[in-house]
């Protein structure tokens, strides 16, 4: 799972995909995850980072991460070529 190379990500959570012309907004935690994915961090590293920073638990993270990543793929912000 990778964020596409040409996808532009702004400080404020504004995301632009030049291939499709679509733009998106995301919340701060979504932005953090996208940044980490862009830096090619593993899911485990992302999990650790989120769990240490936010009041949440493992199973909530698991469920929401899976859903978020699926939306990134649906919106062609990420591709699943590993």
């Amino acid at each position: 799972m990778k964020i596409k190379k040409n996808v532009a990500i702004s400080e404020s959570g504004f995301i632009f995909n030049p291939t499709t012309g679509d733009s998106f907004s995301t919340n701060p935690i979504g932005l953090e995850i996208i940044r980490m994915l862009k830096e090619e961090k593993s899911k485990d590293e992302i999990r650790k980072s989120i769990l240490s920073k936010y009041i949440t638990d493992d199973s909530t993270f698991e469920k929401d991460y899976y859903d978020f990543v699926m939306m990134l793929q649906t919106n062609q912000v990420a591709d699943d070529s590993e």
Binding site: I15, D22, N27, K53, Y54
Partner: peptide, 17 residues
Amino acid sequence: MEKIRYERPVIKKLNTG
């Protein structure tokens, strides 16, 4: 470090105009 309130990550397509 004090932990902060969690919110589910969301991404939303913007339909300009």
